[in-house]
Computed example of a mutant assay.
Amino acid sequence: MTAPDGTGRGPIGTRPPRPDARPLGLDIRPPRPDARPSGPDTRPSHPHTQPTGPTVLPPTVPHHLTGTDVHVTEPLQLPLRAGADRDRRGDGGHRGDGRAATQAVQFLRECLSHGLRVTYDVRPGTYNLRALRHLPPPAERPAEAAELTAWRAGHAYGMLYHRRGPDFVTVMDRRERPASLRFTLDHPDLLSAFDALHEAMPLDALPPVQREAADLLAAERLALIVDGWAVALPPRLRRWPVPCTGI
């Protein structure tokens, strides 16, 4: 992977490619202010059009769905912050119950994807939220952790999302405002790993080439890896604001 300036390092710390590595086609570039995302327009014809049929959320998180409101009935376990030794091992500084954390992130991602209002609490802990700022934050509680307050204060709709074209996916990332990046995933291994990680799953369930691709996605914070489990982070937005150019 290389940055737009050819240095091998981009605004969010892209890694230079190994000389002996097969390039996986993760193109990273800042979007032009006046440009629409590349590829065909896959947005609904109306900014507030919902997909036909009932909304189906992952059953792995207990919840009640009433109209466009979701109430999660049990506190969620999000990724915890790991120590420096874990950071050096390349797992992104996350620890905790990998299955519970990635399934919780998948659930919140799908709530965001369908334009649903979700109310939930989190279990006590020191969280690593850098990659999760685009997700709906938890309900406000007295004496909550400072990182949860900051998450709520800085959250905005459309901070991270993906759009799909023929044989490629574009991802818009505005989690590090005011900077923004557009990723293009057009290598078959990256696409297959991205699609597989639509569902939270153990990395061991992926073939070796997809595990390597999952690591590359996690390095750019397009996937989350926690204790051997992984899930893709960018939602596909099914509901767009007015004007839709706002995101």
Rank of each mutant, 00 (worst) to 15 (best):
P137Y: 07
A150N: 09
G158Y: 13
P166R: 14
L132Y: 04
L190K: 00
R177W: 07
P178G: 06
L132R: 07
A146P: 02
R175Y: 04
W151S: 06
A143Y: 08
H187S: 11
T149Q: 01
R164I: 08
D173G: 13
R182T: 11
A143K: 05
D189V: 04
F168V: 06
R164V: 10
P136R: 12
D189C: 03
A139H: 08
L181Q: 08
L132K: 02
L185Y: 10
A156V: 03
H162C: 00
L185N: 00
L135E: 03
T149P: 00
Y161T: 07
H155L: 04
A156D: 13
P166T: 15
A153Q: 15
E144F: 00
R141C: 04
R133A: 14
A139P: 00
L190N: 00
F183W: 09
A146C: 03
H187R: 10
A139M: 09
A150C: 09
W151M: 13
L181N: 02
S180K: 11
L190H: 05
R175W: 08
P166S: 15
R174I: 03
A146K: 07
P137C: 08
A145V: 04
P137N: 06
M172T: 04
Y157G: 06
L132S: 01
R152T: 04
F183K: 10
E144L: 07
E140T: 12
V171M: 02
A150K: 09
P142R: 15
E140Y: 07
D167Q: 13
T184N: 12
L135K: 08
P178I: 07
A179R: 14
L191M: 01
R174W: 13
T184S: 13
R164Y: 07
F168E: 11
F183G: 09
P136W: 07
L160C: 07
D189N: 05
V171I: 08
L148G: 01
